[in-house]
Design a protein around this nucleic acid. Structure first.
Lengths: 226, 226
DNA sequence: ACAAGCGTTAAACGAGTGTTTAATTCTAGG
DNA sequence: CCTAGAATTAAACACTCGTTTAACGCTTGT
């Protein structure tokens, strides 16, 4: 069934293998760009300058490579703050602006150093794979719970309240939409096709203001009215 | 290259062919459920109780079937109001509530009679296909333009204004997210997994209130502040 | 020097895809 | 009735996918 016998299963020695890491990085990029299903092992190996059989040699199969990509791109770089968890000491509204900006920044980040975690997550949102449960547990739920804390803090409601959750999904939905709909956006709204920093900043400010309008209003008018 | 020689290309005689229509209906359902790429002609033919070769016999190839599905599911049923274009005489806020409700209703509609146009559109949003341009022109842009009219009417801004467009995308994003994220939503928020009528109504009301909070606020404070 | 084992390679396999072909059935028209 | 053409069928084709295999270097310890 599997073919990865070259060493004991997990652990640091195998994790430090250079071609193994090349495969993981290439796989992260291809998976983030095309999603799990439409990404092919051949694309990954070509990008990694590795032989086709090495994916199965190191990881057994495509799905195990995908889950290890998630685990790999999750590990916090030493010294780098978790992008999606702004300091708890921030004012809730400030924290919300920061987290929205961070999400959109990550969604449009390009280049070699791009943190692909968020885009991997976005793909799972719209096209669940066989590893969706793992993705949810490992990268989505922490972000979701933090957003509920922040939004609940603004609303004056507990994080588990239905209204809190609905608002979190409204925010996530806006971010996910701007991230996903970029190609279609270019057809409906040509000026936005380039999507450079100016556009991104405008989107961040808009999403934050659009969402805060309801949150403040709901907080100030108590829990009853919408 | 093609094999559809059995009759002159378009026109009512070919369009009225019973098995041709069976194929179109089956294809609409499968494309709406799985998207263009992941839908297979074998699934379509099996659902239509038709032979595998008939897709190529009637439509030439899979892509032409897809575009004709879009054209087919677009044609308005006689006597049925266009769901996405509430009467222009409505008050803008009422029109917005109606259109949001209609979109979410269509997104979760199931069964034989489901109007699949909206779900076909949602798929193109997140995973553009070779027919995206056609989808945009034929089903997305009318909805997008109507939303800009309504939202611009509330904001007191022209439909082409950047703020109007951003707000339209915030609304579309929320709807698309609740429609797409249903499987993941069930993992993050178990109570919402069933997604019955009560949940749908709550979502509709929430999205409308969430969006109107900003629109009213922006209208009342003029064009300057967010 | 040599044998052992890991990393790597080219080639193939089996399953699944869209598409094509050639034969068969069905249906009108003379 | 009989035949020409349309509709339908089963089978195969060419291609891509993930995966497997067997052989090939290459280092390493003895």
């Amino acid at each position: 069934m599997n073919a990865r016998l070259h060493k004991c299963e997990p652990g640091p020695p195998a994790a430090a293998d250079p071609t193994r890491i090349r495969l993981l990085k290439a796989a992260a990029a291809v998976f983030a760009e095309r999603g799990y299903q439409e990404a092919t092992v051949r694309q990954i190996c070509e990008r990694a300058n590795a032989n086709l059989a090495l994916v199965n040699y190191y990881f057994g199969d495509k799905l195990e490579l995908y889950t290890q990509v998630l685990r790999f791109s999750l590990q916090p770089e030493p010294g780098a703050a978790r992008f999606d968890l702004p300091a708890a000491t921030e004012q809730p509204e400030t924290a919300l602006r920061i987290i929205i900006g961070a999400m959109i920044e990550r969604a449009f980040e390009t280049g070699e150093q791009a943190n692909l975690r968020f885009r991997l997550m976005l793909n799972e949102f719209v096209r669940p794979s066989e590893a969706t449960c793992r993705v949810v547990d490992v990268v989505m739920r922490p972000l979701y719970d933090r957003l509920r804390e922040i939004v609940g803090g603004i609303l004056g409601l507990p994080p588990s309240h239905q209204k809190t959750r609905l608002c979190v999904h409204s925010i996530l939905g806006q971010v996910a939409h701007f991230a996903h709909a970029k190609p279609v956006l270019g057809l409906l709204w040509p000026e936005m096709a380039r999507m450079n920093r100016v556009h991104r900043d405008a989107i961040v400010e808009h999403v934050a203001n659009f969402s805060l309008a309801y949150l403040r209003n709901a907080r100030d008018s108590g829990l009853v009215r919408g």
